[in-house]
Design a protein around this nucleic acid. Structure first.
Length: 836
RNA sequence: GCCGGGAUGGCGAAACGGGUAGACGCGAGGGACUUAAAAUCCCUUUCCCGCAAGGGAGUCCGGGUUCGAGUCCCGGUCCUGGCACCA
């Protein structure tokens, strides 16, 4: 029992030897298959999913481990509660990150990635996750991306994949397409050259067709509120109207328009209508000019000869600008087209301009400008001396002058002015009545717009799954037949993007030259690869079916295991990854491939872990390398510390000094178990505290409140050990179970020392006795006139009378009660307030 | 600019339908054990006044509601994450 005093100091200070124990149990788990999930026979399936990592060359980031540990604890807890838990892990290894890194260090990604994955797997295994490694996957594996390509075909079949010309960021120096993240202040992140806009034919998925459903389901999903909000904003529903403005006197311009558009056929004197989208149809009387996006297809048809050069120059200029800096620069530029349109409300002719502050991608690519009530229009009107007409004013104000700065008035306390028969109406009424009025004359209709864009999945890059499409001279676009999948990404020595602006695969003639699957004639493959987000949009469907060779996901297994029971990940993926996964799942649902339309029943976003108050980054030199810490403190300590440093859903601050406290806790637990006695009876007060602790920890784990669960266990252990008392086995054995999700290795070891042959993770979760968990005596805070003056002990359930008597019996309290209380506030078991 | 999250001791943090502010841990101070140190164990530790008993103040700032506010409401400051000319 008191062996420890005979140990060498070094051994004693170590408390227990994590390295030996962790090795022992990791080996034993592997040998016993402890972490294997019986996907077929397992009862009460629980799919505990974590966002799979991108296997970087730097190795596992502590942020990954923070996320995974939190998920692992939750999974282990569910297992202990009787679920069959499936906790798979894989690698998101395609993409521009890997490719760029490989370029930088001069390795081939196909060589680099397996090394990185090996390193990640080693690190992950060391950290003691309950992962069933038999279901590991990598998105770069042809057995995986074969089905990514299959997924593309499913979308294509359903008309949800289409090709169109779209702008990309182009670095004229590196001669390559850049992702938006690679453009820093309008310059290439690598060489600093000014980035330009280029147009390429690209594949898109029609996610906008699903905007309404993607939005509506957010109402019932059990997800972190912040994530739901982010998705709502991203989908960006706005209600408004499409209003049609007719271009005036087009007859006079048609000759010019015909020439400009290269139109050589028969002239037909069709009037030209410009449709605009607005959320403020109530302000149509204040629309004093129209603005079209420079790339709007109608621009040339009504640009007058006089303005043709200027317009053409402006279009060239804005086309040259890269996508990012065009958004960043707020200066208003634009040119007049020379034409006028009729405002359908006022019948007045208003000038038509083009300007790059109007985006072709949103709405109709054209707006009616109401400079009095829109900040951007206001700036533009001031820049170019365009008229400003006030049409909204606060109640009771007779101010008809144009506002000095643009107030975006949309409240209950304003009314319309200068608006003909609608003057005097409120905003909501005005909107409705004006739409109705314009609609009668065919000038308007109510519409809903989303800011969500279709998903561009083409990447003019090498390191990704080739898009399974073949272009035939005769048959046109032909999807690769399913039986020919996968379209294997060839090993290409020179995968550097070049000045063609198209994928490196376009240089590999032996690969792209194929015969048409339909007619056998000359054909070539699509040489773009798909977006990494497509790889990760369905990986959760693959995990349970990694053994299925002939289907992407086995129908029976999928029915049993999906949708995912619990998904935990970072909010950096709140929008793209989670939205794309939802979209893909909905499509598969519509294609009768799965019987659910939402992939993740419950999602929780974990927080971010910083160090010494600042985000970890290589440049700051404050990156935590998990290996070092596991080496020094052991995986159990490291895991528990990560969970202790802050609220899981909020993140926390990593402090080197604080980790020692967690290690001390585990050391104390160890020594208490070592010294525990089985003779006699446990202390009843301690047992009472134990049951309270079980209750508290169970509740905290269910709510991911790991930090407070750990605090509760520490508090309990302090009670057990108070005054160097020897613990009874019955006092500490359940504590070992409570600790096991956090510190699985040491818990297994102690469990074995208690004489159990089975894994602690198959032993269930300790139950608490509600009557024991309840307190006998309550401490009541006593306030006199709202100030806390003392506390008294009363039996639980004591009534107000008893509480007052107890309070008045305390002279320290009674002395403040200088008059008869006017009012007594009594909260049973908590507080008594004597109001004088 | 818009949308999230946040601000609590020397430090990381607790306080979950408004009800004992600071649980738990780190650090610090004191003590025990030791020839000594480390480790371990015990005590103290929000701040101010006081030898003490005790008293006062206190959760970013300013108001408000309430018997009672870290928590709710109004206004502001700062930090942090995301989006960004979305009509």
């Amino acid at each position: 029992m008191t062996e420890s005093i005979h140990q060498t100091p070094a051994e004693e200070s170590a408390g227990y030897d994590p390295a030996a124990i962790e090795r022992k149990w990791q080996e034993r788990w592997e040998a016993r298959g402890t972490n294997h999930t019986d996907l077929v026979a397992g009862v009460r399936p629980f799919y505990a999913l974590m966002m799979f990592p991108y296997p970087s060359a730097e190795g596992l980031h502590v942020g990954n481990l923070f996320a995974f540990t939190g998920n692992d604890i939750y999974g282990r807890f569910q297992r202990l509660q009787g679920h069959t838990v499936f906790e798979p892990l894989g690698f998101d290894a395609f993409g521009i990150h890997s490719e760029n890194f490989a370029l930088k260090v001069g390795t081939h990604p196909a060589d680099l990635i397996p090394r990185n994955i090996d390193n990640f797997r080693r690190q992950l295994k060391r950290s003691g996750l309950m992962v069933d490694w038999r279901h590991e996957l990598s998105t770069t594996d042809p057995d995986y991306y074969r089905w990514t390509q299959w997924l593309f075909l499913k979308l294509y079949e359903r008309g949800l994949a289409y090709k169109k010309r779209a702008a990309v960021n182009w670095c004229p120096n590196d001669k390559t397409v850049l992702a938006n993240e690679q453009v820093i202040n309008g310059e290439c992140e690598r060489c600093g050259a000014k980035v330009e806009q280029r147009f390429l034919e690209q594949w898109f998925f029609r996610i906008t067709d699903y905007a309404g459903r993607l939005l509506a389901n957010l109402d019932w999903l059990d997800w972190s509120e912040s994530t739901i909000q982010a998705q709502r904003n991203w989908i960006g529903r706005s209600e408004g109207a499409e209003i049609t403005f007719r271009v005036q006197d087009l007859e006079d311009l048609t000759g010019a328009a015909t020439i400009a558009s290269g139109f050589t056929g028969e002239f037909s004197p069709q009037p030209v209508d410009i449709r605009v989208f607005t959320t403020r149809p109530d302000t149509v009387f204040g629309a004093t000019y129209l603005v079209l996006a420079p790339e709007h297809p109608l621009v040339d048809t009504f640009t007058t000869d006089e303005h043709r050069d200027e317009v053409a120059a402006y279009k060239r200029r804005s086309a040259k600008q890269d996508l990012v800096s065009r958004r960043v620069s707020k200066e208003k530029t634009g040119v007049f087209t020379g034409s006028f349109a009729i405002n359908p409300a006022t019948q007045a002719p208003i000038p038509i301009w083009i300007a790059d502050y109007v985006l072709m991608e949103y709405g109709t690519g054209a707006i009616m400008a109401v400079p009095a009530h829109d900040e951007r229009d206001f700036e533009f009107a001031n820049e170019f001396d365009l008229p400003i007409v006030r049409v909204v004013t606060p109640h009771g104000s007779n101010d008809m002058r144009p506002p000095a700065e643009a107030p975006y008035l949309e409240t209950d306390s304003v009314r319309l002015v200068n608006s003909g028969r609608f003057t005097g109406l409120g905003i909501a009424d005005g909107k409705q009545r004006i739409i109705e009025y314009l609609a009668e004359h065919g000038h308007a209709r109510g519409v809903v717009n989303y800011r969500l864009h279709d998903w561009c999945i083409s990447r003019q890059r090498y390191w990704g799954p080739p898009i399974p499409i073949i272009y035939c001279d005769k048959c046109g676009t032909v999807p690769v037949p399913e039986k020919d999948l996968p379209v294997v990404l060839p090993y290409v020595e020179d995968f550097k993007p070049d000045d063609t602006g198209i994928s490196p695969l376009a240089r590999v003639e032996s690969w792209y030259r194929v015969s048409c699957p339909t007619c056998g004639g000359n054909a070539r493959r699509e040489t773009d690869v798909s977006d990494t987000f497509l790889d990760s949009a369905w990986y959760f469907l693959r995990y349970p079916s990694t053994d299925s060779e002939n289907v992407a996901f086995d129908p029976d297994i999928t029915k049993k295991w999906l949708p995912v029971t619990s998904y935990i990940g970072g909010n950096e993926h709140a929008v793209l990854h989670l939205l794309y996964s939802r979209f893909v799942t909905m499509v598969l649902h519509d294609a009768k491939q799965v019987d659910f339309e939402e992939p993740f029943t419950r999602f929780r976003a974990h927080g971010m872990i910083v160090r010494d108050g600042a985000k970890m980054s290589k440049s700051r030199g404050n990156v935590v390398n998990p290996d070092e810490y596991i080496e020094r403190w052991g995986a159990d300590t490291f895991r528990t510390y990560l969970m202790f440093l802050g609220a899981y859903e909020e993140g926390g601050d990593f402090r080197d000094q604080s980790i020692a406290g967690v290690r001390r806790f585990l050391d104390r637990l160890w020594s208490s178990v070592e010294r525990a006695t089985e003779s006699g009876a446990p202390d009843t007060q301690v047992i009472r505290k134990l049951h309270q602790t079980i209750k508290k920890v169970s509740g905290d784990l269910a709510g991911l409140s790991y930090n407070t669960a750990i605090a509760a266990m520490m508090e309990y252990l302090n009670v057990v050990r108070r005054g160097e008392r020897q613990a009874h086995r019955a006092e500490v054995e359940p504590l070992v179970q409570l600790v096991s999700p956090f510190a699985p290795h040491v818990a297994e070891e102690l469990w074995e020392r208690f004489g159990h042959a089975e894994s602690i993770f198959d032993a269930g979760w300790p139950a608490f006795d509600a009557s024991l968990a309840a307190e006998e005596m309550a401490t009541l805070a006593v306030q006199v006139a709202g100030k806390t003056r003392g506390r008294v002990q009363v039996p639980v359930g004591a009534d107000q009378e008893a509480a007052v008597a107890a309070a008045m019996a305390d002279p320290g309290i009674a002395k403040f009660v200088v008059s008869t209380p006017k009012k007594i506030v009594f909260v049973p078991g908590r507080l008594l307030n004597l109001v004088l």
